[in-house]
Structure formats: C-alpha cells, structure tokens
Design a protein around this nucleic acid. Structure first.
Length: 997
RNA sequence: AGGCGCGUAGCUCAGUGGUUAGAGCGCUACCUUGACACGGUAGAGGUCAGGGGUUCGAUGCCCCUCGUGCCUACCA
C-alpha cells in the first residue's frame, strides 16, 4: 500500500511480468476439476508457428481473454486451449530460404533430413508467438498447448483421412488446379487471391484451312495459344455459323485445330471466337470436356512457369512472360496480330508468395464436400450455431451453397504426409503394370539412370530400397490405385508385394486445422476433456478465415463428432491503420503490438482494442487512443491512491486488518443492527450481487447518505450493462460502460463528494468507497488484468487472486437516489457554469441562493448542502421556497429550482445577459418544435397517449423555465440601467446552510 | 458483373421510429484546490452524404443518386 501511495503514476513494466508468473505458478489458467456453473471452452485460432504477433492476433487474443476471464470469475469451469499450426507452405518457405542462404536445396538433402531441419527450426523459433501471447496476458491453459503436427493430432488427421477415403469422400483426380510455380505446389481455390490488374487483350488471326480467310480470337494470355486445341464459337452466332467444323492452322505451330461450338461462349466479348487451351484455363478445360470426343490437352507451361517442350523449339524453356513478348512479336512479323489493346482483368496470385498462379492439369487429392456441406449449412440455418454479427451468415451460406471440391494435396514436405500407398506390381486401371505409371526422379544416378518409371529403374537393376532412399520426387499417374489404412500399409493387400511406395504429397494445413476443436481435446481417444469441453462455447476469429477454417471445422465436427464444434462464432473486425488501410509489411503501415505494449503497457493496449471492437466494423487503430486509455488507467490508479490515503487517515473507522470480504459482511451485519441496510443479501457476500435496490435500501434512506446510495445504484446499473454487453459480444460498449462509470461517476462525483463526508468521519462512506472500488476492479479485470491484480493485491483479501473472485452480478438500481442526486448535480453544475461563463475566478468563494419549488427539492438540497458548498466552492448557501433574487445576481433555472449567485462587484451584466439570452434562444427553438407538434391534429389523434402526455408535460416545463429566465433577464435589464451597483446587503450575513435564514 | 457494408462534431466512432442526436480524442478559456496536469471546471463545434417516399412523427424504415470499402465471379 505504501508503495502505491508513493507513485503518482502507474508503471506497467514493473508489474506485468510479476503477476503473469504468479498466475502461472498458482495454476490460475487451468480449469478446476469441478465447478457448479458448468463449463466454458474456447480453442484459440492457432497462429502459424512462423508467425509473430500482429494486430489481428492481438485483437483476437484480447477478446478471447476477456471472455475467458469473465467466465472464470462468473464461476464457470473455463478452458482456453492454445496452440499453433504447422503452416505447411509458409514454414517450408522460411526454412528453404534459410537453406538457400547456405547454398543448399531441400532436394539435395532429402526429405527426411529436411523435415528434421524444419523441426529443429520449429523448436528454436516456433515458440516465439506463444511467448508474445503471454505478454498480452492471455490466460490460456498452457499445459494443454497443442501443435497440428503433434502425435495426437496426427492420429486424428490419419483417422479422418482414412474414414473419408473409405467412404469415397476423398479421391484422386486429374484436372486443372491452381499451381504456384514458385512454391511448386497445388493450391486450393481459396488460396488464390484475385487482383484486378491492367493487362492487354491481344487479337490474333487464325488462318482457316482451305479458304485463305481468318478467324480472329482475343486473349489476355497469348503465350497459351501454343497449347490451343480448338477455337470455340457460340452455336447461335450467325457470324460463325459456317465456320463450325472447319479447321484452322494454329499460328507459329503446324497444328490444325477445329472450330467447335459451345454455348458458354459470349458473343459480345472480343470477337465472339475464343481460343481453347484446356491445359491452362479453367473455362477452356470445361469446354474441352463438353466436346465429344473431348478436346486434347496440350500442356505448354510447366510446373516451373517455363514453356515446355510441347510449346516448340523456339519457345521451350522460356519463362511464360518472356515467351509472351517473343510470341507477340513473332505474330506481328507474320501479320497475324490484329491488335493489342489495354484491358483490365483479375489475375490469381498465390496467397503465400503473391506469384501469379498457373492453372495446370495435375493429379491431386480432393475432398468431396457436397454431402458434408448440407449439414453444415443446416447447423447455422437452424441456429444451432450462432454467427455474430449475423451479417456473416449470408456470406457463409452463399459460399457453402456453391462450394466446390477441396483440393487437399500439396507438393511439399512439411506437413501430414498423405497416408496412401501404391503397389507397382499390380495392374492399373489402364491395364498396365502400375510401376510403369509411377515416375520417379532421383537425387543421384542409380545404375546409370537419374529418373524414369519405377519399372524402368528396377529393370536397370536398382533395388526398391535404393530407389526409395534417393527419391527426389515421385509422380503417380491417375491410373494407379491408392491404398490407405489407419496403420501404415506395408504390403499390397492384393498381391502381397512388400515393395510398395508411399504417396509423397502432404495434406493442406487447413485439413488438420479443421479438426482442431476436437483433435486438441484428445479425439479419437474418448477423453474427459472431450466430454467436458466439446462442443466448445464460442469461436472468436476474423472473417478472413470464415471459409478456410470455420466452415471446414463445422463440416468436420458434424461428420466425426456428430455435433457442432462450437455454439457461437464471434467474428471480429480486421485491424486497419488510422487511414482505414489494411496493415501490410509492403505498405509499411504495420503497427507492432509489442511496441504498443512497451510504450503504453498491456492493459492500455488491450483496453483500446476492446473499446474499438464495434461489431461489424473494422478497427481503425490509432496510437493516440491507446495513450488516452493509459490516462484512464492512471486515473484509476490514483483513485486507489486516494482510497489508500484515506485508509491511513480514517482506518480507525473500520476494525484493523479488515479484509474487503469482511468489510462487505460487516456492512450487512451493521445494517441488520441499525437498519442501515436491510435484506438477506449482502452487497458483497453470497453471490456477490450488488444489492442496492429498493429492497435493500428502503430502510436505509435515513442512514446511508444519498451519494453512497447513488454510487451503489450506478455500480449496479453498470454491472447489469456490462453483463448484457458481454452476452452479446459488444465489447466496445462494455468497455465504455466501465470507463464512464469509473471516471465520470466514481471519480468525478463520488470521490469528490466523499471528501466531505470523510471529513465528518462517516464510516459508511469509507466502506462504500472500498466496496465500490473493489467491484470496479473486478469489473475491469477482464479488460485490464495486470493493473487490477496489482491494485487488488494492495488491499486485504481472503482470496489469493482477483482472477478467481466472483464477478459482480447485476443488481437493482435505486431510482430515488438517482433522481435526488440529479438535483444536486444540476445545482452544482449550474453554479460552476455561471462561474465559468462569467469568468469568475475558481478560487473566489461565492454566495448562492436556491429558490425551491417543491418541498421535496428543498429537503433534498438542505440535507446535502454541505456537499454543494464544497463542490461548487461556496461561502454560503441559502435554500428555501421564499428566497428572493438579490439584485445583481447571475441566475440558473432548472426544473424545480432557481439558483441565484449574487455577483456584485465582479459582475458583468452584459455577459450574464448574453449568457441568458443564449439559453433563451435554445429554449425557444425547442418550445417551437414541441408546440408545432402539439398543434398538429394528426399528432394529437394518432400518437400514442404516453407520447402525447410526455410532450405536453415537456411543453409546460419548458414554458415555465422560459418564463423564469425571462423574468430574470428583465430584472437584469433594470439593473443595467441602474448605475448603483452597490453590494447587496442580503448577501452579507448569510448563514451557511441555515434553513431558517 | 453480382453480393454485403459504410457515409453522424475537426478526427475516430457509438446510437435510436417519438426528451434539446452522444462519447473519446482534438480545440478554446480559466485553474498548479492535499488522489490524479497521464489532472480539474466551463465552453465552442452537427441541414445525421444528397434527393424522393412511407408515417402524426425519420438520423433511424423503403427507393434512387453520389462517394467509399470489402467479399464472391471462368467473360477469353
């Protein structure tokens, strides 16, 4: 406590690490063995092992931590399960880059050694982000941390793969896929980012065989013409009706290709004739498959993005873009280039490396999603899964309803290797021995061969063992039949062959992520965690992975757990910079969360994120606001200093060594004795409900002072509000509610008022201060775990951490106290306003008189006049129905009273007249408006009665107020013409607060 | 091209079919008052994008326009 009193400012650095260690040592993040309130679980969206904390993570983690801490304090058995995913492509890229700097490539070191190297990297650097999550204060149960390549999770992956495979929901297919020529792997549709770019539309003449005329086609990718196998026109296009069935000579090659008809050809676009390159365009592939017989596929671009041998001698080996230039110039030379005009279109890029993707025909593994999507759609439609904010539901549906099969194989090494094997000895679907259809490249020559079919290599004398140990890559033709099983397949079930080969591909990282909500809880084992925590309560994530991850988790959860993976999905915004731009390294507008923490402390940073997390809106992050919330923490810190100072001063009012818990019980006990507070419910005991409601306080009106009652009522209201906000994931509203309560109610008013009653040694005020502050710390804790723990520990408590203390529950309000308090606030504010606007020095004590218009107002003001005197800095105050306005006073008019402040001598009549007429102006505007409404017959007839009544009452009040101001104005006018501004004797001998005077 | 969202104070954003539309930051004036200058008090500042419509009543609901952002899409 002494420590705290010394420091006028909160210093987060000296605090945060200490308490995080403390929580860990005391196992505060682990779910208790039992809890009455049921369980609450969240699995973290696993960040990439390669990742380091960015704003998105920071927001994501903050929101989850708020929920976890809130639910924990609310008595739930909370599990927040952390972990990372292995991020196949990204991680492999990182390590390959590292290797490249050492002059090594992964193929030369071999698969085994490479994977060992990645693990090494992972152990060394992979924990980085976990460390950063801890800095954020994340209350994850670290003892349950998981990694998607863990043994347990790999078992789950294996089981799911085999299950789906055996059911025919996983299959291999040869078709066009998105290929990244830099990452050297297939990508799923989702992993391709489309970006609008300025390109060119090239019009090329294809000579028609026989008649010397041309058909002109338009293309954005001229280099693919080398792989054209047809030209397509719409069968209804009269321009080309006679062309269908004719042959054209493909320029720059000697190939003849047909002109075919296809309904999908858009007659409006380009020339209405389209070149068809089935190997390099999804659309063309579809045309090719619609033709009968199917059009042939000629692949002219290879996996490395260079032209293949099939493109002809002149172009083979050229980069695809280089080839484009050469080819266009060649066409020009041949007079076959009609025109080449600028053209905007969308181009797909690899989401990992931004390289332009190349559609290529390859054999890949797919998940047939249609049957999985149905139930997943239904789960959301039926409300079994609630998506918040609701707007995202539509996105979810529209994607799910048009979902396409999911390509899950990746041609990389880091990941779950596909559990599929091939027997080279068995006969394949094309009638050949399968070994002839398995192509293998080796890292070194074996018996004179560096590559060839498995059969070729064996025929040359290489053993199965030597082949498998020197594999560089393997390509398994679509005609080869895969074998799969929970256990590794070591012998061909058909022919008993022991010399079989494993599929080299690994699974898409999202395949394992899709199982995350149950694989992390121990599935396929039947664990206690699964029973306790599945389905999880809520998934907190960004919308950017709604399809990648959320949708797939729902499908997999329903399929393998027969239940949804989570009840709620809270989708939060993207964090942008203050200009609304997406943060990205290339733009250089990235704000590093760790720098924010360093500068302002974790609590201020977390609170900022929560306060800006309005639903359905992006977060525009600006550092100024973080600073603002650091000020808020400081305010809170100093409120605590104030309380501690007063404990030192007035501690004798409470028993020595009283804990906060005891204090609460005492408050109730005393209440029972002298009827300060009635009721069975203690404000702090029991469920910790804040019972300041009518029941509890009915008998206290004469004993607890107005302000104690008022602040208890505000606390109660705030708790109610916060609980409602949390329930609806309105984090920003919750943050604002607590901010407003602490700063503008507790500090601005209650602390100021308490100074007066503490001077009178009112023990209840001290107790209320402590009690309300104690609850404020609890309310704030989920947002600001560190400072609240630090402060909480400086008070005597019976429990060891604020983390596990019951969260304040909503209670009843005290309307009577709120209404009375409003009078006091109005009076004090109006006097302050007079002071401020008439430029009266704050240090000058004033006299004031209040003419009351009801006995209720009068009693209320009299009971609290010492507070008014202190807060408005008065020398004297007279209250009564008969108070007359002294000459030369400034006035303020409120609903039930008039306030006069005699200001002879330091009084600028003009300024006061100005002030009053400004108020009159405003008032007149409103009166006009209300009057218009009331004069409207339709309004009187059709508006609901209560609204009508309200308007009438409002009108009366406004008019009365106006009259009173007017009369004050008139008196001032008289004064203005009166030169003798002598001191008013009335103000001289005022007896402060004496009702009789 | 389709879908979704946004446009409210100088800035960032809340908000609601019916009180004089709010907050934070910023701004202005005054104040070093014993919790806090990372503070206090008092102020200034808004045709709620524009135009129609529904309604007794619209910033809120509907339509259109303009501006802006995002997602989805095989127009070569």
């Amino acid at each position: 406590m002494e420590e705290q009193i010394k420091n006028k400012a909160y210093d987060p650095k000296s605090v945060e690490e200490r308490w995080y260690e403390f929580w860990l040592e005391n196992d505060c993040f682990k779910p208790p063995d039992s809890a009455d309130g049921g369980s609450f679980s969240i699995v973290i969206p696993p960040p990439n092992v390669t990742g380091s904390l960015h704003m998105g993570h920071a927001l994501n983690v903050t929101l989850q931590d708020i929920l976890a801490r809130w639910k924990r304090m609310s008595g739930k058995k909370v599990l927040w399960l952390p972990g990372t995913d292995h991020a196949g492509i990204a991680t492999q890229n990182v390590v390959e880059r590292q290797l490249a700097s050492e002059g090594i490539d992964r193929h030369s070191m071999g698969r085994k050694a490479f994977i060992a190297r990645v693990w090494e990297w992972k152990q060394r650097y992979g924990g980085h982000i976990i460390h950063q999550l801890k800095k954020m204060g994340a209350s994850c149960d670290w003892s349950r941390e998981r990694f998607t390549l863990d043994e347990g999770l790999s078992t789950a992956v294996r089981k799911v793969f085999v299950g789906l495979f055996e059911e025919g929901l996983i299959y291999r297919a040869l078709r066009l896929i998105n290929w990244c020529p830099r990452c050297f792997t297939a990508l799923s549709d989702l992993e391709v980012e489309h970006e609008e770019a300025q390109g060119r539309l090239t019009f090329i003449r294809y000579p028609i065989v026989g008649d010397g005329s041309f058909v002109t086609v338009a293309t954005t990718r001229p280099e693919t013409m080398l792989g054209d196998t047809a030209v397509a026109v719409n069968p209804d296009d009269p321009r080309y009706a006679n062309f269908i069935g004719k042959m054209v000579r493909l320029p720059l090659t000697n190939r003849l290709i047909p002109i075919v008809a296809d309904r999908e050809v858009d007659m409006q676009f380009g020339t209405g004739a389209v070149k068809v390159t089935p190997s390099h365009d999804f659309n063309d592939e579809a045309i090719a498959r619609r033709q009968s017989p199917n059009l042939p596929f000629v692949t002219v671009i290879g996996e490395d993005g260079r032209m293949t041998a099939a493109s002809g001698k002149r172009y083979a080996g050229l980069d695809r873009y280089e080839c484009r230039k050469v080819l266009v110039s060649d066409l020009k030379d041949d007079q076959l280039l009609e025109k080449d005009i600028p053209h905007n279109h969308a181009i797909g890029h690899c989401y990992r490396c931004k390289t332009v993707i190349e559609p290529l025909p390859t054999t890949q593994w797919y998940v047939k999603v249609e049957s999985l999507a149905g139930p997943a759609i239904e789960a959301v439609r039926s409300g079994k899964i609630k998506i918040v904010p609701e707007g995202w539901k539509n996105n979810y549906f529209s994607w799910m309803e048009n979902i396409r099969d999911w390509c899950i194989s990746r041609q990389i090494w880091w990941g779950h290797q596909i559990p599929a094997w091939y027997c080279p000895r068995c006969t394949g679907m094309d009638g050949k021995p399968q070994g002839a259809n398995i192509f293998i490249a080796l890292t070194k020559k074996l018996n004179g061969l560096k590559e060839g079919s498995y059969l070729d290599l064996r025929a040359a004398g290489a053993t199965h063992e030597s082949i498998t140990s020197y594999i560089k890559y393997v390509k398994v033709d679509i005609n080869v039949k895969p074998l799969s099983g929970i256990e590794d397949v070591t012998a061909c079930p058909e022919c008993g062959n022991l010399e079989i080969l494993r599929d080299p591909d690994v699974l898409d990282t999202w395949f394992s992520s899709a199982l995350w909500p149950f694989s992390t809880l121990g599935w396929p084992e039947n664990t206690g965690d699964l029973k306790d925590f599945y389905p999880t309560s809520v998934l907190v994530t960004g919308f950017d992975i709604l399809f990648f991850w959320v949708a797939r988790m729902i499908m997999m959860g329903l399929k393998f757990m027969k239940d949804v993976p989570f009840g709620n999905v809270y989708i939060h915004a993207l964090v942008r910079d203050e200009k609304g731009q997406k943060m990205s390294k290339s733009k250089g507008n990235v704000i590093d969360p760790l720098i924010m923490i360093e500068k302002y402390g974790t609590d201020a940073f977390r609170f900022s994120l929560a306060a800006f997390a309005a639903q359905g809106r992006d977060v525009r992050f600006s550092e100024d606001r973080v600073e603002g919330y650091r000020h808020f923490i400081n305010k809170f810190w100093n409120a605590s200093r104030f309380i501690n100072l007063n404990i030192s001063k007035y501690g004798s009012l409470i028993a020595p060594d009283t804990t906060m818990e005891q204090l609460g019980r005492d408050l109730v006990y005393a209440a029972g004795q002298n009827s300060r507070v009635t009721g069975q419910d203690s404000p702090v005991a029991g469920q910790n409900s804040i019972d300041s409601g009518q029941n509890a306080l009915a008998a206290t009106q004469d004993s607890l002072n107005l302000f104690d009652r008022w602040i208890l009522s505000r606390l109660s209201y705030t708790s109610t509000e916060i609980e409602r906000c949390f329930d609806e994931y309105r984090f920003n509203d919750a943050a604002n509610a607590i901010y407003h309560f602490i700063w503008h109610e507790f500090c601005d008013w209650y602390i100021e008022l308490s100074k007066t009653s503490l001077e009178k040694e009112d023990p209840y005020t001290l107790k209320c201060l402590l009690y309300v502050f104690d609850n404020a710390m609890k309310l704030l804790h989920p947002f600001m775990p560190f400072v609240t723990e630090e402060l909480w520990q400086s008070y005597a408590h019976e429990t060891k951490t604020i983390m596990l203390v019951p969260y304040p529950h909503p209670g009843l309000g005290d309307d009577d106290a709120e209404k009375r308090m409003q009078y006091i606030i109005d009076v004090i504010s109006s006097i302050r306003s007079i002071r401020g606007e008439l430029n009266v020095s704050p240090s000058k004590p004033l006299h004031a008189m209040i003419k009351t218009m009801s006995t209720d107002a009068e009693t209320n003001l009299r009971a609290n006049c010492s507070y008014i005197i202190n807060l408005a800095h008065l020398e004297s105050l007279r209250i009564g129905a008969k108070v007359e306005k002294p000459k030369g006073s400034a006035t303020a008019v409120t609903a039930e009273m008039e306030v006069f402040v005699p200001l002879s001598g330091l009084f600028d009549v003009k300024a006061e007249l100005e002030r009053l007429s400004k108020e009159l102006r405003k008032l007149n505007e409103v009166i006009d408006m209300v009057n218009k409404k009331l004069m409207n017959e339709d309004f009187r007839d059709k508006a609901p009665k209560n609204v009508l009544e309200k308007e009438k009452a409002k009108f009366e009040e406004l008019v009365s107020k106006k009259d009173r101001i007017l009369s004050n104005v008139n008196k001032l006018r008289e004064l203005e013409s009166d030169d003798t501004q002598s001191d008013d004797p009335d103000t001289q001998h005022l007896d402060p607060c004496n009702p009789k005077s």
